[in-house]
């Protein structure tokens, strides 16, 4: 049972403040949607959360421990990020075997996760021949290698077909039902509203609203509430 807590996270690129004192809490047993328009700072926040980008201020911790200080980070957190790709000339099996070796996971996890994401039949094909959806499944397989309590997923439905989206929804719900913590970023409200419990809305690098999804729209239209919060609706 691990809680992800982000507090006062800030990142500046020259004169541009990409993330500006952002905070959120993703709790065990809940799927937290991290929603915002393109360029709102979602990906930068997740990269800082996972130690790939250094914040100028603030912190992101898993039960009080920074990602880089976790003893076996991928046993606690599994992540899907666009910055963490497989080599196109490698087969999926090789890619996962190397990731397992790096992360200190048993080689037996490789066929397990390949089966879990329904890629076993294509396991020995070069990743360069994969469709976008297959790559997303492989990214999820990589995230699941350590059977982590926390999943951090950056736009994981990109490229997935309807069947893939349903499969992802079932996977995410199952992880949360088992007590896992899921933080999932997206700019497609209609899609994630089907499976998130809590919502953090981000706009221009700041968290502008957080709470249960049911409270976001109140009695009105959910999409209107989101667009109003993010400045997308005049």
């Amino acid at each position: 049972m691990t809680t992800l807590t982000i507090a006062g996270l800030t990142k500046r690129y020259g004169p541009v403040t990409a993330v500006d004192g952002l905070g959120l809490v993703a709790r065990p047993g809940r799927v937290t949607g991290f929603l915002g328009p393109n360029g709102a700072g979602k990906s930068t926040t997740l990269r800082m959360t996972l130690g790939l980008v250094r914040p100028d201020a603030g912190s992101a911790t898993f039960d009080g421990v920074r990602y880089a200080d976790l003893s076996q980070p991928t046993r606690t957190v599994g992540a899907v990020l666009d910055l963490a790709a497989p080599h196109p000339a490698m087969t999926a099996r090789r890619h996962l075997a190397i990731a397992a070796q790096l992360g200190g996971h048993s080689a037996a996890r490789v066929p397990h996760v390949l089966t879990a994401v329904d890629l076993m039949a294509a396991a020995d094909r070069r990743v360069g021949t994969y469709s976008t959806g297959m790559r997303q499944r492989l990214a999820l397989a990589t995230a699941l290698l350590g059977d982590p309590e926390v999943l951090v997923l950056d736009e994981p439905t990109n490229g997935l077909d309807p069947a893939g989206i349903r499969w992802l929804r079932d996977l995410v719900r199952a992880r949360a039902a088992a007590g896992g913590t899921v933080l999932i970023s997206s700019h497609q409200l209609s899609e994630v509203q089907q499976y998130v419990d809590d919502v953090v809305v981000v706009s221009r690098g700041r968290d502008v609203w957080s709470g249960p999804l049911t409270e976001l729209g109140g009695a009105g239209d959910l999409e209107d509430a989101f667009l109003t919060l993010t400045g997308g609706l005049a």
Binding site: L50, G51, L52, Y67, A68, L70, P73, T74, A79, L81, D82, L83, A84, A85, P86, H87, P88, H95, A99, L102, G103, T142
Partner: peptide
Amino acid sequence: TSEYRHGTIGTTFLQVPQ
């Protein structure tokens, strides 16, 4: 540089943040 070109360095640093 292949690690950076293909983005595999992200996977590597996620597995081993040190």
